[in-house]
Design a protein around this nucleic acid. Structure first.
Lengths: 141, 141
DNA sequence: AAGAATTCCTATCATTTTACTTGGGATTAG
DNA sequence: CTAATCCCAAGTAAAATGATAGGAATTCTT
């Protein structure tokens, strides 16, 4: 019941981009260094974030990545869903087309999984990068 | 971000035991059959539940397993924690002794993981097997 | 006492997932 | 031109998952 490094590194990278929002393209190696993760590995994660439209890229020298939207418009849920796939503690409650078992109608554990899913979603869908930035400013001062 | 079959099968088995609570020892093969999971695999999960004190066992013929406490006294969280290990979306917020990174004090993503953890815990720690039994009775009628 | 039912224990194993690493190609600012 | 940077595709070692196999220990029933 843990997130993989994809989700964790991905959120770190996105938060890093949020901190530098408005400064033009941020090269990946600087993000990797600050967040202390493998640059090549991070590259794969950012590629997914780019394909899903959360970040934009600028190629060539002095290029890099930047947020595709304002920090207030990107939630933690957006990021995690891209990197970890459809959310849900069990296949039968996956957000993205549940795989129902044969007695789904009478399955009591399913009710539990649904409640867990709602609990997680209600957290990650209400935290934006902007919220994280504000927490960050508080701590810095 | 999914539970493994351990947690899922384990909760099913515990719910099955709750349904038959008070009927004496329930043999594992009957649980495996009703819940449609491998008996041998289930055995491993139930062994962990026994060691952690959630179920009792009676050996020998006519033996089996039974809940060690009343259904109202066992939460979903108790069961999942035994089978899935200490809860938390990231190592730095594991319930059972977090593994702190070097800038834990200034880590903003950590705040997010903590909120997710609280969200999950508040769900699974408030649902008991008794609650599930009541849902079950409603559906049956 | 025999035999059947059942838990208990240890080991093995195939598959999948994770978390990278490697190596190179394409693009562009200076 | 060249250095910086993104882009892409494979490969890979380790861990986790989800079992399977076989048998020893215990206890009920007859």
């Amino acid at each position: 019941m843990k997130l993989s490094t994809k989700g964790r590194y991905g959120l770190k990278a996105m938060f890093d981009l949020a901190i530098h929002d408005g400064e033009g393209p941020i090269p990946l190696n600087s993000i990797a260094e600050r967040q202390r993760v493998s640059e090549h590995y991070l590259e794969q994660l950012v590629a997914e974030l780019r394909k899903s439209g959360l970040v934009k890229s600028v190629r060539g020298a002095q290029g890099g990545y930047m947020l595709a939207h304002k920090p207030a418009e990107i939630t933690v849920g957006d990021i995690i869903r891209v990197l970890e796939g459809p959310l849900g503690p069990s296949d039968c409650v996956l957000e993205d087309g549940p795989v129902l078992c044969d007695n789904a109608d009478h399955c009591i554990t399913k009710i539990v999984w649904e409640k867990i899913q709602v609990g997680i979603s209600s957290v990650i869908d209400t935290i934006t990068l902007q919220d994280m930035l504000e927490d960050y400013k508080k701590i810095e001062n």
